[in-house]
Amino acid sequence: MSRSRSILSRNIRLSTGLTLISVVVALSASGPLLEHRALDQNLDQRLKAPSVQMPFGTDALGRNILARLASGGVNSLVLSSLCVTASLIIGVLLGLTSGWLTGSLLDKSLLRLVDIAMAFPGLLLALLLAGLLGGGPAVVAVALIFTGWTDYFRLARSLTVVGRTAPYVEAGRLSGFSGFFLLRRYILPKVLPHLSVLATLGMGKTILYISSLGFLGIGLAPPKPEWGAMIAESLPYMRQAPHAIIAPAGAIFLTILGFYLTGQALARNAGRQGAA
């Protein structure tokens, strides 16, 4: 009884999450088509309330908010996928190496580095790097990768530490197979299923950071649309045109929620399979 209910609630999470992600991806897919409209200023049309032609109205410079949302979505999704992919590759490779060489100097120093990276406030670090090195998507990406790789590292390392003592791996080592081969053949396949969970949650977290940085005025340079920056730009007009804030705020919330819900549902799925 309780079991069937929890399966149901998990499926609600999963389907809600996936629906939200697909809506955001579909909206963003139209972004490149709307790019010029996202930048077109029309000072006669400033701060117009939502209407049939412009479902989300216009901002302080008369730009179409829907077009800007779509265009900003592309930027956020592309940048965060890049960050997540890079963090994942770096984290897994280092984690496998570190776990295979447990107790070595490399392992110890990597663990120490992870401690530092995890203890450091991610946003603050991104802020420092981006501010001091001059902003732009590349610097934001570096900062986000620095704070993002630790989860994948810890996962890959812990599974490797457990996996390398398994009898078949020991046997393989004694038979003279290389560490690279054994890692790829026996340990990596155990790591991969968990990665989808971490990567999905990581997408949500990265988008949260990107939008926060955008809000603070660091990251993608204006006039290129970015959801967080759109909110910051519209703050002075929140009395006349609250829609110019609500629209990007909603976009941020629903996107992150979509990734979080999907990630949580996947995590429970994995937990259930692991237990069975």
Binding site: L208, S211, I252, I256, Y260, Q264
Partner: peptide, 10 residues
């Protein structure tokens, strides 16, 4: 889960 999906500025 809903609140963690909300950045503090939102």
């Amino acid at each position: 889960s809903v609140l963690t999906a909300l950045p503090s500025f939102v």
